[in-house]
Design a protein around this nucleic acid. Sequence first.
DNA 1: TTCAAAAGTAAAGCAAACTTTACAAAAAAT
DNA 2: ATTTTTTGTAAAGTTTGCTTTACTTTTGAA
Lengths: 68, 68
Amino acid sequence: MRNNLKVERARHNLTQAALAEKAKVSRQTINAIESGKYIPSTVLALRLSAIFGLPVNALFELEEEDRA
Amino acid sequence: MRNNLKVERARHNLTQAALAEKAKVSRQTINAIESGKYIPSTVLALRLSAIFGLPVNALFELEEEDRA
DNA sequence: TTCAAAAGTAAAGCAAACTTTACAAAAAAT
DNA sequence: ATTTTTTGTAAAGTTTGCTTTACTTTTGAA
């Protein structure tokens, strides 16, 4: 699973902590997602989509291995 | 969390079992999601998005209570 | 160079997604 | 009306997202 979080966060000039607060998750959760440690829930993905004004599909993309 | 699974599945003429197979999950998982028992993971949401040719945001929508 | 803010990382614990097995109810076909 | 397909539902177990606490490393400003 590939994601653009780091780039979008930079584009919006937000720290991991600030984004975490906006998305109502812990800072570690944002960090872990950015570093590929795990994949966000759909609720969180939709929240990030709203925060950045981008569709979920633009923010997250399945890699070959995860495709159905 | 609101979702259009049932409608899209009907539109594509798929049984729960057939969709489950396409999405590589169990039939019960599809059933549970349709009946609001739980929210799909982002991986599954993206797979369903691909199967139906619709953006995740069109398939799933946060309700007030879940918004950040 | 020093100090503070930001990012990285780790472990224990909880909650929820998902699986498997299994059976009942409803719908559709014959 | 009977049989078959589809849907609904339930329980036990596994996996994984997420939290909290806490400590280290990196970045950057003063």
